[in-house]
Amino acid sequence: MDNLSELLHGFTIAITVPHLALMVIGVLLGILVGVLPGLGAPNGVSLLLPLTFGMQPVSAIILLSSMYWGALFGGSVTSILFNIPGEPSSVATTFDGYPMARDGRPTTALATAFGSAAFGALVGVILITFLASWVAQVALAFGPPEYFAVYFLAFASFVGMGGAAPIKTVVALAIGFAIAAIGIDTVSGSVRLTMGIDELVKGVSFVVAVMGLFGIGELLVAVEEEFHARAVSSRIDWREVFGAVGRLPRHGVALLRSAAIGCWMGITPGGPTAASFMSYGIARRFSRRGRYFGTGEVEGIISPETADHAAGTSALLPMLSLGIPGSATAAVMMGGLMI
């Protein structure tokens, strides 16, 4: 296996003391960036770019990619604890992560999320290792019709597999499309639905929408329900951290299915967001405990997290083999490589 010997050679480059130190720094910075909503991985990576100018290219990319890891992990933290997703791709994690944390099991929720995220990422990397050239060809075959078909499938899977009434799902989708249409139309260049407000020309930012919908919306519901008794007595126990990770193999089917969805969506640049939503929807339909999804189910955390990270990782593949970034962060990182 030619790739394998190349990989081993790569390990000799990666596992050196300065590079390991860079990884630790990158991951910690990444977690910090990921935890603060609104900053997000693409911004964080671009903030770090100037730091890498004086470095060897390999060291620079190691710092950037470990920061990417850190930010991906950190993004799940606020989704689970406060129902505020820091990244589009961690929105689906809030559905079950937040109820579980509210239920007094934040340790389990976080550990499960991190464990399955790591699994997804690992599958993504393995895919890159062995299938790089083959996958590159598939990605090349993707034109606008294919992109649309993938997005269409993501929307349709919500109507067909979501837990809500299909009509309500369609209504929610329609409102979302209307909001997405605000701003400059990228095909014709005309300005739509801005009602004469200049600031709306750039469109509605995802971060703004999500922090309002999830963060503030949840807060309003909480305030209405019961103002005082919402402090959660969370047990903090190392055994619970490792117990949650140890229980992951029991959900092997969900893990593998989500990783497959994630890889597929990452390579065909459908992206981690669509991947995590789709994986959640499919898990809800196929899981035996599907009807309890949304109340703090373990598989409801595993599915979106695994898919998210599998997609996030395999999104690096088109970048490496073709020079097409599969995600915003990958694009910024590629910018860093070119400097």
């Binding site: 269409f152 929610a172 499309f177 909001i179 995802f206 939503f277």
Partner: peptide
């Protein structure tokens, strides 16, 4: 009403 489809449409609606 489910929030997930709304967010999904906002995020990838214009790309679609």
């Amino acid at each position: 009403y489910p929030l997930a489809p709304l967010v999904l449409a906002i995020v990838i609606g214009d790309k679609a």
